[in-house]
Design a protein around this nucleic acid. Structure first.
Length: 386
DNA sequence: CCAGACGTTGTT
DNA sequence: GTCTGG
DNA sequence: CCAGACGTTGTT
DNA sequence: GTCTGG
């Protein structure tokens, strides 16, 4: 994941986070918003800036909205929505500026063990709340920003780690976080070889946030496989280049860029009739030619959807041309989620990964029989902004 | 034992 | 904090 | 349409 | 001059 994501929906105590339709178990637990500066929509969240993070509540201090106490033992009973700085500074560091690049943490290195993550991964896990994330498609010398989000518009939840450091020159403890990345799903490899770890099920979220054991487990490793949730497809489309400018802000950053031709026309229109109130075709859905191959998907205007069903051997990519098709596809019957898709992860893992004998991707379906009901997908959780 | 590393992406 | 290299 | 680029190397 | 990006 490139270091950029968006949170265009203000997250507030009285808003989405605390009201989790479809996720009743979590709802009463989110009780605090620590920090006050995140109530403004931000479409261009860059490293070193503050961002919203969900973590397990760990101490009495949380109840007092104070940041002064170390989180020591997480219990899964309470969650806190927190503001932290993007770019993890380990608790044993005394300098806020490290040489290390810690905006991301590779899943492979978490699983492997040691290193900088070793002292953190068992104790300080969190979830980063976003509308979606940006990735720059390399096309020759160019870099075209693309935005990836849940197709249904719900907020996206990244697996993350955080830590609290007492650094020089700062009276208050420094809270920072990182976003875990993993191998990109096959259908998104045309864009980039990595993707953030995206959590969608109640089960995954609870497990990831539960740091009560203070210990890493193979179960956690399994949460880090490339994203593939039949019930929460992703979509991806080009967005304006201006998002690449740190500090720039515009709602258009998360909106698809039209085909160049259209964009130019719109520009002409704008130039020619700058005084005219006629607005460009914001909602006007135009037909466009469908790009046949993923190689062409980067063409402006195309929207790629990560579809669910890895049914057959070849393509499980669903290419959607434009919003109208996209909606058509949305209404198609949902596939059953019972068949756990093979995780393509195992073979794609980095060579460094000296995996412990891996369970051959046991389907999750019956993994937790003790659960009363099948793990609900929290698809309605975080509805799109209205 | 102790000093030193520990990380990721390739984005303005 | 925890592991590695010397 | 029009403003702006128009190039290569990069590895102690 | 001519191509590219917006």
């Amino acid at each position: 994941m490139c270091g950029r994501f968006s949170l265009s929906t203000p997250v507030r105590r009285s808003n989405q986070i605390q009201q989790l339709p479809g996720y009743p178990a979590l709802q009463p637990r989110v009780r605090n918003w620590v920090g006050r500066d995140q109530f403004v929509p931000r479409y261009n969240i860059a490293p070193s800036t503050q961002a919203p993070v969900l973590r397990a509540s760990t101490s009495r201090a949380d109840a007092a909205d104070t940041l002064s106490t170390d989180a020591v033992s997480g219990s899964a009973s309470d969650l806190v929505l927190h503001t932290m700085k993007w770019g993890l500074v380990p608790h044993w560091s005394r300098s806020e500026t490290t040489n290390l690049s810690t905006i991301n943490a590779r899943a492979e290195n978490l699983v492997e063990g040691g290193g900088i993550w070793g002292s953190i991964k068992g104790r300080k896990r969190c979830i980063v709340v976003a509308q979606g994330y940006y990735e720059w498609l390399k096309k020759g010398k160019e870099r075209l920003p693309h935005f990836t989000r849940h197709k249904d518009g719900k907020l996206m939840l990244f697996a993350g780690l955080y830590d609290i450091a007492h650094v020089e020159g700062r009276a208050e403890p420094l809270w920072t976080f990182t976003v875990v990345t993993t191998t990109a799903h096959k259908d998104f490899a045309w864009l980039h070889d990595r993707q953030p770890v995206i959590l969608t099920t109640e089960d995954a979220i609870s497990k990831w946030l539960d740091t009560s054991s203070q210990i890493w487990s193979p179960e956690l490793s399994r949460l880090l496989d490339p994203y593939s949730d039949a019930d929460s497809p992703l979509e991806c489309y080009p967005v304006p280049k201006e998002v690449g400018k740190v500090g720039a802000e515009s709602p258009t950053f998360i909106e698809p860029v039209s085909k160049r031709r259209d964009g130019i026309e719109a520009m002409f229109t704008k130039q020619a009739q700058s005084s005219s109130p006629s607005k460009g075709s914001n909602s006007g859905k135009r037909k466009r030619e469908l790009s046949p191959a993923p190689g062409n998907l980067s063409q402006s205007g195309d929207i790629v959807v990560l579809s669910s069903q890895p049914t057959s051997e070849d393509s499980d990519v669903e290419i959607v041309a434009g919003p109208s098709s996209s909606q058509a596809s949305q209404s198609k019957p949902k596939p059953s989620n019972d068949d756990g898709p093979e995780t393509p992860a195992s073979s794609q893992r980095s060579k460094k990964l000296k995996t412990t004998p891996k369970t051959p991707s046991s389907p999750r379906k019956k993994a937790e029989k003790s659960d009363v009901k099948p793990t609900p997908k929290i698809t309605s959780f975080f509805s799109p902004k209205t």
